[in-house]
Structures are given as structure tokens and as C-alpha cells.
Simulated scan of single mutants.
Amino acid sequence: MELIILRHPETIANKEKLYIGQTESDYTEKGIKQFNEILEDFKYDIDHIYTSPLNRCKILAKELGKKLDVDFELIESLNEMNFGIFDSKNYKEVQKLYQKAWNKWIVDYINYTIPEGESLRDLYERVEEFLNELKKKEDGTFLLITHGGVIQTLITLLLDLDIDDRWHFKISEGALIEISYVDDYGIINNLINY
């Protein structure tokens, strides 16, 4: 199985360094440029596209689907982590407004469930469930359009790493990662930043 994993282009929330999970945010000018570059440069032969249902991913999936004449499928499991009460705020705002929750999250960011949101463990489990279903499909090349946290999770799962090894990977907006997965062994073949 070949996976092309693509992070959505830069959004306003990304530029403002906000925790942005399952809330919509429009592309910045840089994001629009990345969007156009990805569309122009994308030359992979894809069997199917799976995308987060959020517009920052779905719009790109729709346009790439048209270009490649390939269907795309909305996958809830590819949504970014739900940051609950932290959503649409920067870390200073979160520290000020939700100090107790922030402190609990910092102490155990893997297992602590953010109020009205989810834990990193929740994200990990839903992404793993999707990936296990994908592994059952016949060999093919699949495009996954998703978010930074989901991509870090996918990489840790595909490379058989621990959940907290995710911080070894900086996934910029507009990043494209090529991963081969054969006989339960993942290899990163290429990383391109737009």
C-alpha cells in the first residue's frame, strides 16, 4: 500500500497560532498559494481519496478529485483533535481562562480529556481504527487529506512508534508525505513542503 498524506494549506487560525481542531478556518493568502501549487504539481496515480470533512481539507479533496478523476470520501476519523474549550484560542488565552484544565493537560497530554473535547489517546484510537480498515483493502495508492495532529498520529502508527514519538515530526501546513506500507512495515519515502 502506498499512502500520500497531505496536510491542508495554511489557515487564518494556523497563522494566528490558535488551537484549531474541528472549527472551520479559511485559508490565508499563503494557504491559497499552497492550494494552487499543490493542485498544479500533484502528479500521483491515486486509487481513492479519503479526507477530513472540514472545509480546509474537503475543498482540496474536491479539486484534486476533479483533476485526477477520482472519488473522495469524507472520513470523520480524519478530523483534527477536538480541542474543546481550548479551541480557537492561543496558549496564553487558554492558560489564563482555563488554568486548571491547562495544567492537567500539560501533566498528561496523552490521556487528559479536554473539557468538551477529547484526549490525544481518543484521537490516536480513532485514527488507528481507520488505518486498520484501510490496511484490509487490496493494495493501492491512497491519498489522505487531513490535519497536523492526525498526520503525526498516522506516522507513529505506520512506523510502529510510541504515541509520544509524534513530536519528532514537524508537519507544516501544505506538507505532503509519501509512505510505503508493506508487510506491516512503513517507510517514509519523501516529504515535500509547499
Rank of each mutant, 00 (worst) to 15 (best):
D45C: 01
E29R: 07
T23Q: 12
G31C: 08
Y27T: 01
S25F: 09
Q34E: 15
G21H: 08
G31E: 04
I49A: 09
Y27D: 02
I46T: 06
T23A: 14
Q22F: 13
G31V: 03
Y27V: 05
Y50V: 00
Y50M: 05
I20S: 13
F35P: 04
Y27H: 00
E29Q: 14
I46C: 05
I32N: 09
Y44C: 04
N36A: 04
G21T: 13
H48M: 08
L39T: 05
Y44P: 00
E37W: 11
E37V: 11
S25R: 08
K33T: 11
G21L: 10
E37I: 15
I38C: 05
D45Q: 11
I32P: 00
T28I: 02
Q22D: 02
K33H: 02
I49F: 08
Q22S: 08
Y50G: 02
D47N: 15
F35H: 10
E29G: 06
Q22C: 06
Q22M: 10
I32F: 15
K43F: 10
G21C: 07
D26T: 03
I49Q: 02
H48D: 03
L39G: 13
G31R: 04
D26K: 13
H48V: 01
Y44D: 13
E37N: 15
Q22G: 09
L39D: 09
K43A: 10
F35C: 12
L39S: 09
I38E: 07
E37M: 15
G31Q: 08
K43H: 12
G31A: 06
G21R: 06
D45T: 10
T28P: 07
I20R: 11
S52Y: 03
I32Y: 13
D26A: 09
Y44Q: 07
E24F: 08
Y19D: 04
E37T: 15
I20F: 13
Q22Y: 06
Q34T: 07
T23S: 15
E37G: 04
T23V: 10
K43P: 00
D41S: 15
G31P: 00
I32K: 15
D45E: 15
Y50E: 00
L39K: 08
E29V: 13
T51F: 05
I46V: 07
H48S: 03
D41P: 01
D45A: 02
D45N: 14
Y19A: 06
H48C: 03
T28S: 11
E24Y: 13
E40C: 15
D26W: 11
I32A: 14
S25V: 00
Y19P: 00
S25K: 00
K33V: 07
S25H: 05
I46F: 13
G31N: 04
Y19M: 05
H48W: 03
S52G: 06
G21A: 11
N36V: 08
D47R: 03
I46Q: 06
H48Y: 12
Q34N: 11
Q34W: 05
T28Y: 01
